[in-house]
């Protein structure tokens, strides 16, 4: 198992498209990662069990078996970070992948910057939480222990639910959170399906955190899926 440094990780790509594998290999290689490839689900699983990678990039549409099945098999025995690749228009499959334990997803076509940012977030979360309990989001500092938020040194008043929502997103920074997951975390089982709770609190939170609440830079909407906090 790799030491987990962001600079050099072992990444396994399972995708049937040779060109996508080549481009991903180039991009990731340039970023200093070591890349292994597989073109089918069976081959991918074999490579995975040979040596567990730091991150698995998994395409949902594979020729021999569905990407979801590959994901389920892996999740039975491992919690290595999995980044799922889906095709435009398959909102449903993204959600099921996240539900099955995928850590994040990317929709093809995607940009290099997006891919690397997602990988960084996944690799960072592999590391144990580093000392400080204060997280900076743009001009805003979140003190997780003291449950307080300041903007440019001035205190921003958050209700306890608003803070819980922010803290949950901070804990999963960079990762797409499903509506369902957030609702369950904050309001328990009875919160599931009450999307309007989340919409309303997110609206309030953005007004307090974002400089331009109508075009947010940090508290981003993941189309058809949920929310994602982007810190950097």
């Amino acid at each position: 198992m790799n030491s987990g440094t962001v600079s050099s990780a072992d990444i396994l790509i399972i995708d049937d498209e040779a060109q996508i594998r080549r481009l991903l290999g180039l991009t990731l290689g340039d970023a200093g990662h070591r890349v292994r490839e597989a073109s089918t689900g069976e081959e991918g699983l074999a490579r995975f069990w040979e040596k567990e990678p730091d991150v698995l990039i998994l395409d949902l549409g594979l020729p021999d078996m569905s990407g979801l099945d590959v994901l389920k098999k892996i999740r039975d025995r491992s919690d290595a970070p999995v980044l799922v690749l889906s095709v435009f228009g398959q909102e449903g499959s993204k959600i099921s992948a996240l539900d099955c334990g995928a850590d994040d997803y990317l929709t093809k076509p995607f940009g290099e910057g997006e891919l690397l940012a997602r990988l960084r977030a996944l690799l960072r979360r592999k590391k144990p939480a580093a000392g400080g309990n204060t997280v900076r989001i743009g001009a805003v500092a979140v003190d997780l222990e003291g449950r307080s938020v300041t903007r440019d040194g001035k205190l921003v008043k958050l209700t306890s639910t608003e803070f819980d929502l922010l803290a949950l997103l901070v804990a999963n920074a960079g990762k797409a959170m499903l509506h369902r997951q957030i609702l369950r975390e904050l309001w328990g089982a009875k919160g599931e399906g009450q999307t309007h709770y989340l919409r309303t609190y997110m609206m309030r939170l953005r007004r307090k955190i974002e400089l331009e609440p109508d075009s947010p830079k940090h508290l981003l909407t993941e189309s058809g899926v949920g929310y994602r906090l982007v810190i950097d």
Binding site: G89, T195, H196, M202, R206, D214, P216, T221, S223
Partner: peptide, 28 residues
């Protein structure tokens, strides 16, 4: 893709609460 889905009758809206600002910011 959208037009094809519309014509195939494959559009099954999942109606739920959403914030118009969210919709706009994603579109932008």
């Amino acid at each position: 893709l959208n037009q094809t889905r519309l014509e195939a009758g494959a559009i099954k809206p999942q109606l739920d609460w959403c914030d118009v600002r969210d919709v706009i910011s994603v579109a932008r």
